[in-house]
Write a protein that binds this DNA or RNA. Sequence first.
DNA 1: ATCGCCATGAAACTTTAGTTTCATGGCGCA
DNA 2: TGCGCCATGAAACTAAAGTTTCATGGCGAT
Lengths: 285, 285
Amino acid sequence: MHEVEPTIQDSIMAVYDQLPPGERKLADTTLSRLNDLASYSATELAVSAKVSKATAVRFFRRIGYQSFGQVRRQARAEAYLASPLYALAGVNPKERATDALSNHVATDIRNLTETFQHQKAKHFDQAVSLIATAPQVRVIGMRNGHFVAQHAAYLLAQLRNNVASLPGSSMTLAEDLASLNKGDVLLVVDFRRRATLLPTVVNAARGANVNLVFISGPGMSALSRPGDIVLQCLTEGASVFDSYVAAVSIVNYLATSVAKQLGKHSRKRLEVIEALHESLEDLRP
Amino acid sequence: MHEVEPTIQDSIMAVYDQLPPGERKLADTTLSRLNDLASYSATELAVSAKVSKATAVRFFRRIGYQSFGQVRRQARAEAYLASPLYALAGVNPKERATDALSNHVATDIRNLTETFQHQKAKHFDQAVSLIATAPQVRVIGMRNGHFVAQHAAYLLAQLRNNVASLPGSSMTLAEDLASLNKGDVLLVVDFRRRATLLPTVVNAARGANVNLVFISGPGMSALSRPGDIVLQCLTEGASVFDSYVAAVSIVNYLATSVAKQLGKHSRKRLEVIEALHESLEDLRP
DNA sequence: ATCGCCATGAAACTTTAGTTTCATGGCGCA
DNA sequence: TGCGCCATGAAACTAAAGTTTCATGGCGAT
């Protein structure tokens, strides 16, 4: 019978929930680099986790290694074993991945890269400006698009006031729409399998001179008119379901860009929200 | 127009046949380790090529780098880009990401690849089986995780009966939980900034012997216990916000796998739903 | 309020990696 | 043979990484 040595991941997990905050940050950055851990120095890890070198030493000692050198040696040994996808996909780039998993990942990566490659910078910047400066921002998405819309609303609400996703509650859509004015932004997430409700909403918004920003799938959103701002995302799925990975990514980037445009202002807001949460004891560290 | 930087391999090849014997030995060992070059020190390379450290320095300088530090940095970047998945996505490894946008995309691609690389196939398969066969499936996620949970519920609901996301409506959480029995599955989406409610829910579920499946960020979900099924996703963001791209991707793959396990059964269900939608005129083509 | 515990980072310190200098020796060539 | 060139490694040196020590500050218990 012989002991199976724990992997670095195992070692970290074993103590993860007893780690103090600083060391936990380090644990997270370490875990996120598990693949090529051996190519980082302890100092680099410490810097990127925003803790001191001393904390790094304590951390690696706590998870059971005498020195960082040991960690590096083991990391290198593990990297050698731990790349199933490498094996599956073949080292030769010309060999195509054949199994479902590699295929899935490859499809999503392609969705990401192509979506951003084809994005028009002009549209994107316009969308950012509008969202940053509009008196009110509303987000709507049905079915497949609903969760993307929710995500967008959640992120944007951390950056500015007057962000909400529609419909607020089940039967208030009409009221919600009525409160939109010229200069406001309606972010419409519009993918395949659209509900019939959506065109109605869009028309109402158009009537009120609301600025429309679309996040839509490949093939122009039938709801948009020339002149509207449209951010197109690839949604190709490797199998039965469409993939909304690119849409989620673009929402993140959109919110990030808005944050940058708002600058200090929104950073302040993020802090206020953080403080509120703290005092509400609503979150855990 | 901008110069394409040569890869390390290019740099070596360019001067290979003018190299003196010692440096050539070093060139050979370097080339043979190109894929994880960054994890070796110059000293190690020198030792394994049986030349002195001084020769190593001369060699790396001759191929065009000021210091070994530069070599290491570039090696790391190349190793990362040389992954077969990048090749599949058609990304040109020689193009460097420098601006915010490229950085964003690169981060998300990294999140995807690493998330799937570190996934334990065993956990994943268990999750799929449980979800495919459980009498009831419930999904819960708060804050950052909420939209991911919604997406999961939406996809799974297309494949099988008795899928719902919690809380169904604002005040029914207790009732919802009470209706869970042994053998049911609770899919918990648990990311940073967790609401305090979540631990309560999880404990209740544990009390009822419900099977728990976690989708969580890097660093083990503090809610999970050894033995639980945990699917970990990287959530590293390129800027202010964490990225949930990998989580969305894994949800898609999870649902896809459930679909495959259910086979005809779920295909039938998809058709039924489609027919329902058609007759409700709820969708547009 | 005071005490004690612990996490933490700054800075001193040690060790290791990387670089430079220099002496040696091989090799071609006059 | 003697000269110059250059590759090379040993060793001195410098820079960077890793480790230790220590002072601070937060936090809970007394």
